[in-house]
Write a protein that binds this DNA or RNA. Structure first.
Lengths: 346, 346
DNA sequence: CTGAAAGCGCTTACAG
DNA sequence: CTGAAAGCGCTTACAG
């Protein structure tokens, strides 16, 4: 087994307390003792075990991220922001994945009970208020991303506004028959995006046709998959009166939808939601979520809450930006021009 | 603070040993005592702290994954395989990110010293033999993915063979002037891919022109970025005699290369390496790495090694498959046909 | 500046 | 089947 604090204390002829102090940068140690201890520690390859330190200090210095089964581009972008920000603090990031198919509450509960993290950042997990309430009882710092619950700090994007903007833009371009592709209908982001879509139509005096709001049959990952988008667009295109433009609740589905349009050889403008890394490459217009910034902010919030448990709860809502590309050009007639090519090599 | 084993022992009128036994599914407890303990535990919301258990058992039941700053599609696919496989065992996955810009050895060393994991799966970290040797001294189970070192179990893809196949295919199609886009020149996968490319040319009796082997200036993430691919392809296309086809060391760079071809309005067949999720959507031909399978296998290997420290070291090398799409069609003259459309909606 | 001792929250032989 | 006790590897008041 690796050497412990006892081994090096014995070798150095000091107490374990002194060794501990050396490794905790306490200044209550003479330079001489410090050097002796360090030398021995180096020789024996000693390094404090984080586990034991955590138990003794009652602090793990770990922030645990809970996120549904990865393969999720949204998560990657958010994580990049978290990564960069955590470098400013003395915490490590630990990531646990939950399976979206199983009971999410139980999984989150299980992870939090185990108690690895001093704080938890929960991404894209959608639960009801009563369920979040259950988690709140642990009295542990939690920050939610892409979800809203009044009892925790949350960071999200205004889905209603985003959907409204996307739909309105399509209407301004002169389209009147607008389809919408959505995912799991009862998740908060989807509810809001449908709402924004409806409002935009209503405000423009266009009747909402519920046949035009579809989702695919594949409900894996709550429907946020290419195949779901493919199926949804297929439904739309085989309608007696197919829409002449479409708002899609996520870029990943839009990708499938674009493929479906290719296969059916019937192309209509489409605007997605997210702005994933590949979206630019496929020329997909979309509502951009500031994912990197959301991740960065999440770290700030969770650290603040860990270190100061009773700061006020805050809810940050970002406004998504409309990014126009070939899939839904700014002006009719420019259907093949990529509006942002010039700025995209950065 | 949350209740401890002492609280529930007191309430239940038993010793802490008994409480511990109940939670460890020891059968040496009467049904009656068990029920009483469980009832109290439930009432008080007790759950054993993983931290304390780990210290007492000297086992964390954690497998730590070390991976360069995420935003990495390759990693996501591998992780998906790990996720699914870990469900078969009683371990949790903990992910630590390392920054590729900093000293990787130090970072890996630091993570391993902290001792959270019982075993480590290190992905896409490229070090020299002498550096890996340093890590081996800890005597901790390690599995390497996308790297080779004789002292650890490794899982990789045959880069030489893959590059050879890709290049040979291009030659068979009748192309004679072949460019190659590579990334950080001294990393093992790149060295091998350049080697395979050279061999294919030599075996076909074609002179290797070192001007044709390029990389971009942006060396972020070791050059595995779209912008690097864009720059590299730009160099190739502005050569006095541009190549008439190209093998690219990674799909992510190929994406940038395709954009460059668009901007220069000069298209040549291109074959990438990886087969990332978006590759199919952009019609990129590529050498497919079985990433999911690699992740799954990594879990099997690491668990095996944790539970049986002295099993023989094994090195698994997968052969990449050539996947043809629009970017390098199987037969000249079919440049716009996507060979795999039919099977892509699964 | 340094040490002895209690404590962090569990597990696990060892007795009974 | 159950309990007392030692131990996991550290930290941290409390004395000196």
């Amino acid at each position: 087994m690796n050497p412990t604090i006892y081994d090096i204390a014995r070798e150095a002829g000091v107490s374990i307390a002194t060794v501990s102090r050396v490794f905790n940068d306490s200044n209550c140690v003479t330079q001489k003792t410090r050097e002796k201890v360090l030398a021995i520690a180096d020789k024996l390859g000693y390094h404090p075990r984080a586990l034991a330190q955590s138990l003794a200090r009652k602090k793990t210095r770990i922030i645990t991220v809970i996120v549904p089964v990865i393969s999720n581009y949204f998560f990657m972008e958010v994580l990049a922001g978290m990564q960069d920000k955590i470098a400013d603090y003395d915490y490590d990031l630990q990531i646990f994945n939950v399976k979206i198919a199983d009971n999410l509450l139980n999984q989150a509960d299980h992870i939090m009970k185990r108690g690895w993290g001093e704080g938890y950042v929960v991404i894209s997990v959608h639960l009801g208020d009563s369920e979040w309430e259950l988690l709140r009882k642990y009295g542990v710092p939690v920050v939610l991303i892409d979800e809203y619950y009044s009892g925790f700090d949350t960071i999200s994007v205004d889905s209603i506004e985003g959907a409204y903007s996307a739909t309105s833009h399509l209407i301004e371009q002169g389209y009147r028959s607008l389809g919408m592709i959505c995912a799991k209908p009862d998740s908060k982001p989807i509810v809001d995006r449908v709402l924004g879509y409806r409002r935009a139509l209503e405000d423009a005096g266009i009747m909402v046709d519920s046949q035009m709001i579809v989702t695919g049959d594949d409900m894996e990952r709550d429907g946020f998959t290419e195949s779901n988008g493919y199926q949804a667009m297929s439904k739309l295109l085989t309608l007696d009166n197919p829409p002449d433009a479409c708002f899609c609740a996520s870029d990943i589905q839009a990708l499938g939808a674009i493929k479906a349009m290719k296969d059916y050889d019937l192309r209509i403008p489409i605007i997605g939601f997210d702005d994933l890394e590949f979206s630019e490459y496929v020329g997909l217009s979309t509502m951009r979520q500031p994912m990197y910034e959301m991740g960065s902010l999440a770290i700030e919030k969770i650290v603040e809450r860990i270190e100061n448990k009773d700061t006020d709860i805050t809810h940050t809502v970002f406004s998504p930006d409309l990014v126009l590309r070939a899939s839904a050009p700014a002006y009719a007639g420019l259907a093949n021009r990529d509006e942002r090519i010039a700025g995209s090599e950065s």
